[in-house]
Computed example of a mutant assay.
Amino acid sequence: METTIVKKFKNINLKVENRVAYIAINNPPANAMSSQTVSGLSASIDYVASEPEVKVIVITGEGKFFVAGADIKEFVPAFDSEEKGKALSVDAQAVLNKIEQLKKPVIAAINGACLGGGLELAMSCHMRIAADEAKLGQPELNLGLIPGFGGTQRLARLTNKSKALEIILTGQFIGGKEAEYIGLVNKSVPLAELMDEAKQLAEAIALNKSQPSVAATIEAVNKGLETTLDEGLEIEADLWAQLFTTEDMKEGVNAFIEKRKAEFKDK
């Protein structure tokens, strides 16, 4: 497989293959979500958002960790300051919101410990595949804190209120299979198969689907979850209608009628 693009950001390695960008967190020993890592992640997301060669993104961790949490040492300067504490939360939330709102699908490939800020990062992605051996959890209460990068909100939305409270209040870790069972991840596979599984999912979208319809799907689901059903249906109808003006929609319909594979141009 030919690598078309290779780039580096702060604590981030990025490569693009077959229209898929692979973003790897690289902040040893545990890939902590330090302020530098958050900055590098933000820059890498800005890059893939604007790079037309990229249609799908996979986020994973270098080495044995996905992301084992925030950089706890960075909390010390915020002692006795609500303002500094809130800045730590809001700055990280902004980057994770950027991922969630991206018009290109983002898949978390959870290769190891995925704790605290790491799980919050994974939950901001549109889909998640975990290694069976991975450990997922929100242990912030052990520090006298609560999850601050979106964990209290996304975990309840992805699972349910009582399961989210159990995971957060106990701080206990769960494995990939249990995460799949409760709906926290789409699928759990042996670690040796993880990146192949993520690649297959990413390329199934990147190499076969039209970017305008992919973007519209993400927008419809994201916005719909924030509204009533009636409002969500209106959003869906508007986006459906807009796609009738795209070249790809005409190509897709004509290809179906002519019994051939559609050749989408992402227009």
Rank of each mutant, 00 (worst) to 15 (best):
M1R: 12
M1K: 12
E2L: 14
K7T: 06
F9G: 13
K15T: 10
N18P: 03
R19A: 12
V20I: 12
Y22E: 12
Y22R: 09
Y22C: 03
A24P: 05
P29W: 10
Q36M: 13
A43C: 02
D46W: 07
A49P: 01
P52M: 03
E53M: 09
I57F: 00
G61E: 09
K73I: 11
F75E: 12
F79I: 08
F79T: 00
F79N: 03
D80R: 14
L88Y: 08
V90H: 04
Q93D: 04
K98W: 12
K98H: 14
P105Y: 01
V106S: 01
I110C: 11
N111R: 07
G118K: 08
E120G: 14
L121K: 06
S124F: 01
C125D: 10
D132I: 12
D132T: 14
D132Y: 10
P139D: 02
P147E: 06
P147V: 07
Q153F: 05
A156S: 14
T159H: 03
N160G: 05
A164H: 05
G171M: 13
G176P: 02
A179P: 08
E180S: 01
Y181E: 15
G183M: 11
V185S: 03
K187S: 00
P190T: 03
A192E: 07
E193D: 15
M195Y: 12
M195C: 04
K199T: 08
Q200A: 09
Q200R: 07
E203M: 10
E203L: 05
A206E: 01
K209Y: 00
P212E: 06
P212S: 07
T217N: 05
I218W: 06
A220P: 01
A220M: 02
V221C: 04
L229E: 15
D230Q: 15
Q242F: 02
Q242V: 07
T245P: 03
E247G: 13
D248H: 09
E251T: 14
G252H: 00
F264R: 06
